[in-house]
Design a binder for these strands. Structure first.
Lengths: 213, 213
DNA sequence: CCGATAATGTACGAACTAGTACGTTCACGG
DNA sequence: CCGTGAACGTACTAGTTCGTACATTATCGG
């Protein structure tokens, strides 16, 4: 009767079970926060049981840290896409801004996890070891581009890579993280598709106008 | 023996008890989040008992809403300080940016409450009635200043008051709300007093350079 | 001065929640 | 083909947490 030959149909699959738990936990933590998330609820939405969460991750906190690590490592790949070599500084910066804008919009769960983690003073992130190497890819290309623009006399002299990164992040993060209170108070949906291109362009202008003033 | 004549020495004081609970609850909710905050913990830090929380507020959720309402109403007074009449548009905007910057830095609890409320999709704010009249004071003066700058040909034509407000808020909020993960990843303390003036000036430049590009 | 009511304190319960003890089933090597 | 360990499921517990029933004290009008 049973023909379990195919690897894909394996009833017991370490990788699949782990990935399943992690995916469900990501949504649950992003949605309810660390304290608000319920281990029983995560287990219920999984195709396995609560026992497996403790079997594979150890506990609620370690599961949450694993979720954070996965979310952050997915981000690492972003800034590498910046084409430092072949674009002039202004175009490269506009491209970085647009890339970051798109990336944030595509990963609302990540933004929420970062907000949640900040509520908890980044205490879980501090326990993790994913930090090493996270800063570099985000800033390496940016520093090069800024230096090229400065050398060409097009960018202001006091432009700091981390400051520019902060402005871009602030714009993109705020738009997602604070959209609910913003909507409640001002009645404007910052994620309205009709305004998307406007904001995307605005961020580029904001950065370039500041650098070239 | 007892000489309870003086109003200040009253053993039973409705106002004082209420205010005490609210102050303690504000710190507790801002620190731990809505789900993370414990009613028993709030009661313990109060000079009264848990019974009074339910007597005056009804429950945890209503207490949290009361905290939100008080925090937001304290903000209302801010934007009124903008001197629309006697400053030229650029100075007025720089002043608004600096005012907002200072205000956010002075009220970290408020920023945290807003972050927390956004995690919960602003569902509590929606239940409140403080919303009416919150948007106007924030934007009224700004709209006037922008229009004056536009009329004088100094500001770009497509400048929208709400967009400018968003940029200023994004900068100030991000600096406080995300300082822990930012610090953990990039090793920079965005609240370092040594960098305060730099960021304060930078925000003004950012806004003005965008508007006058 | 006294009764009514607002304000406060104590002790407790019902429901929830993270975590675990214990038992079971599958897969793979020999 | 079978034994051993990895992977998985069930049922339970200890502790927590919101909320409340009930008792008590202060204050103020008459």
């Amino acid at each position: 009767m049973a023909a379990p030959a195919s690897e894909a149909e394996r009833q017991r699959d370490k990788e699949r079970t782990r990935a399943d738990i992690l995916a469900v936990a990501t949504r649950e933590f992003a949605d309810k926060g660390y304290t608000g998330a319920r281990v029983d609820e995560i287990a219920a939405r999984t195709s396995t049981t609560k026992r497996m969460i403790y079997y594979y991750f150890g506990g609620k906190e370690q599961l949450y840290i694993a979720v954070l690590e996965q979310a952050y490592s997915a981000i690492r790949t972003l800034e590498r896409q910046l084409d430092v070599e072949h674009l002039d500084p202004e175009d490269a910066l506009r491209r970085l801004a647009a890339l970051t804008f798109d990336h944030h919009e595509a990963h609302p769960d990540f933004i929420r996890l970062v907000s949640i983690e900040n509520i908890h003073h980044a205490q879980h992130l501090a326990q993790s070891e994913i930090l090493a190497g996270l800063a570099d890819p985000a800033l390496g290309g940016l520093a090069v581009v800024l230096e090229r623009g400065r050398a060409a006399g097009r960018f202001r002299a006091d432009a700091d890579p981390l400051d520019i990164h902060m402005v871009i992040s602030a714009f993109c993060v705020f738009r997602l993280a604070n959209r609910h209170t913003f909507q409640a108070i001002f009645g404007r949906d910052m994620l309205d598709p009709a305004r998307r291109e406007h904001y995307r362009t605005m961020l580029g202008d904001l950065v370039i106008d500041y650098l070239t003033a």
